[in-house]
Design a protein around this nucleic acid. Sequence first.
DNA 1: AACTCACGAAACATATTAAGTTACATGAGT
DNA 2: ACTCATGTAACTTAATATGTTTCGTGAGTT
Lengths: 133, 133
Amino acid sequence: MRKDSRLSRMLHILIHMDHMDEPATSDHIAIILQTNPVVVRRTMGCLRDKGYVTSVKGHGGGWRLNVALADITLLDIHNALGESSVFTIGLSDENTECLIEKAVNRELANALKASEDLLLARFGEVSLDKLAI
Amino acid sequence: MRKDSRLSRMLHILIHMDHMDEPATSDHIAIILQTNPVVVRRTMGCLRDKGYVTSVKGHGGGWRLNVALADITLLDIHNALGESSVFTIGLSDENTECLIEKAVNRELANALKASEDLLLARFGEVSLDKLAI
DNA sequence: AACTCACGAAACATATTAAGTTACATGAGT
DNA sequence: ACTCATGTAACTTAATATGTTTCGTGAGTT
């Protein structure tokens, strides 16, 4: 699987946007993130749905930060992007009644959950202003 | 990316193999894991390279467990499979000198590392005999 | 020696997901 | 009317795990 760099990219651009007086267009953001304007709209759209940014059409339009950096955490952005699972490791499909398979999957699920919980807890402790220069 | 179920599958079959008197053929293993014999050879080959299993050709051949379940941990198998990163989350490519981007990536890298360290530490604490019925 | 069994490995196909791209519709300001 | 910028659908590309076919090779059987 290809790595999902959306979280990194969105954190990056949101911090930039905090300095901006004018709305940032998708084209402008795409240049900064070295990607495509449509990818920007697609991803920023997730953040707009949660109210973290606002989009304006037409002349002088673009994307504007809607909250203070101190008021959003890495976890907020992570959740806004709606990632299903943070792991490449998966469980086997339990198509049988095999108790060994179930025990293996249970152990792996518990270990993965503990690891993910730690990651998300840390994400929740870091607000974006702590990453700003 | 599709989920990597190799760890789950290998743990499952290794525990089964501990009960077996005869070597298990790739075809037999494929049936238990509900997959393909070639996939079995490909994945079991990783474990053979580390000495955890032995393969024998010809009549009466197949795969045999080469160590006691108590002597291998989830971490051993995980490492044998040579997974690069356990996360779907990746960092952005730092093609610029942007300090914000670097700060974001540093924070994410640290958080991911702490989470992965916890996962691997737990994997290292669990030997396969603890999952056997 | 011929036959069968089972691994080894190359080559190709499939599935999933992030990302990139093209094209067009829609709404807002000039 | 014209231009700018988002919204969205559809398609393409890339990476990776998995599945499949085919043939080679070594080992035991008849």
